[in-house]
């Protein structure tokens, strides 16, 4: 058994036997994925719900548009009541050939949408009934656009965030605890090189990141959440590795400054939380003001997020890896160098 392999094995065992760490590495981010996925992921909310009275081709065609959901009412009064109360934006009442649309004046956007759709449907049925050949034809085509469904940006975002947690906490806490318990001094007194110790620890973190990737993507792919992977998803692997090394380096820096595990957790949280919010973990950064987007580019997590989004759900190819990889490598080297310079074997 080489020192490298047995050190790695020792750290993996220590990791798997520590329920607290397992919770923060897997369950905690997964909770966010589940909660946000369920909160934001209800695709039914895209449809506008209106009250409907009566029956006939107009109502059935309306349902087929896919944009309107009908709530059936037995009489006009109860449908009208819903609109008056502000529960529904509009009510459509069909009696014979007469179609009446009542809408709430308060929500102009919803009113416009509903009016447009209902009149479109009525016109179409009229045309069909008149048996006239249309002069103008309308062709529609759907394209995959950059604005994504919540689960599509949540999965890469929360995965990157989870990797930043395991990377930063993993290296910072190992370093602080080993220094405090004098394991570092003990290792220093053994004929084993610093490189061996460091690379085995980095390798364990990379393994953790890959495990996180598999678990999170598997959960998001469940029909309940409905993640759709596009393009070359395996291109996420190099990002997992490079992201881990960058966050590992940050953790080393934190670990070099902090004397106790408590201080290190606090400092790691101070680094991770703002970075997570500003890097598009929970919502797309594109919605943020311009200056904030500029600020977000200083975070490695922002670049990792961008890369993950591109290769996991935007269907981009290897060219999307270039910038994020370059930034993550640069972060690893610069932060790692500083951390190595201020590294201490003992308190």
């Amino acid at each position: 058994m080489t020192a490298f392999r047995s050190l790695s094995a020792a750290m993996v065992k220590g990791f798997l036997r520590d329920k607290m760490t397992l919770f923060f590495v897997f369950l905690f981010p997964l909770m966010f994925l589940v909660v946000f996925g369920l909160l934001l992921g209800d695709s039914g909310s895209d449809k506008t719900k209106i009250a409907a009275v009566g029956e006939g081709p107009v109502l059935s065609t309306l349902e087929q548009t896919g944009a309107i959901e009908l709530e059936k009412h037995p009489d006009v009064a109860s449908a009208r009541q819903k609109v008056d109360d502000g529960d529904l934006p509009a009510a459509v009442v069909v009696s014979g050939d007469r179609v009446e649309l009542i809408y709430a004046a308060s929500d102009q956007v919803a009113a416009g949408t509903v009016t447009g759709i209902v009149s479109g449907v009525v016109d179409k049925i009229n045309l069909g009934a008149a048996d006239v050949t249309p002069r103008f034809t309308l062709e529609t085509k759907s394209v995959e656009d950059a604005s994504l469904k919540p689960i599509q940006y949540l999965t890469p975002g929360i995965l990157s965030w989870a990797i930043s947690i395991s990377g930063v906490f993993g290296s910072a806490l190992t370093m602080v605890s080993w220094r405090k318990k004098q394991v570092l001094r003990r290792i220093r007194l053994a004929p084993v090189s610093t490189t061996t110790v460091l690379t085995s620890r980095v390798l364990v973190s990379i393994g953790t990141a890959v495990a996180q990737g598999v678990v999170f993507v598997a959960v998001a792919l469940l029909p309940l959440f409905g993640l759709r992977l596009t393009g070359q998803w395996y291109l996420a692997l190099p990002l997992l590795v490079l992201g881990t090394t960058a966050f590992f380096a940050i953790g080393m820096l934190v670990g070099a400054f902090c004397k106790t595990e408590e201080a290190a957790s606090g400092a790691a949280n101070i680094v991770i939380m703002p970075m997570a919010f500003l890097s598009g973990t929970f919502f797309p950064v594109e919605n943020a003001p311009g200056w904030l987007q500029t600020v977000s580019y200083i975070f490695p997590l922002r670049h990792m997020n961008d890369g993950m989004l591109d290769v996991l759900v935007r269907g981009k190819g290897v060219e999307a890896l270039l910038l994020p990889s370059a930034v993550l490598i640069a972060f690893t080297l610069v932060v790692g160098f500083i951390a190595a310079r201020i590294f201490r074997w003992e308190d």
């Binding site: 080489t2 020192a3 047995s6 050190l7 020792a10 036997r17 318990k181 003990r186 053994a190 004929p191």
Partner: peptide, 28 residues
């Protein structure tokens, strides 16, 4: 040389045998 430090320095969560195997592996 063999050194025992003042604080008991061990790897987290390993059994007695695993501690000895891990430290032993540092020396081959």
């Amino acid at each position: 040389i063999g050194v025992q430090l003042q604080a008991s320095s061990f790897f987290e969560k390993l059994t007695a045998r695993e501690q000895l195997q891990t430290f032993g592996s540092l020396y081959g």
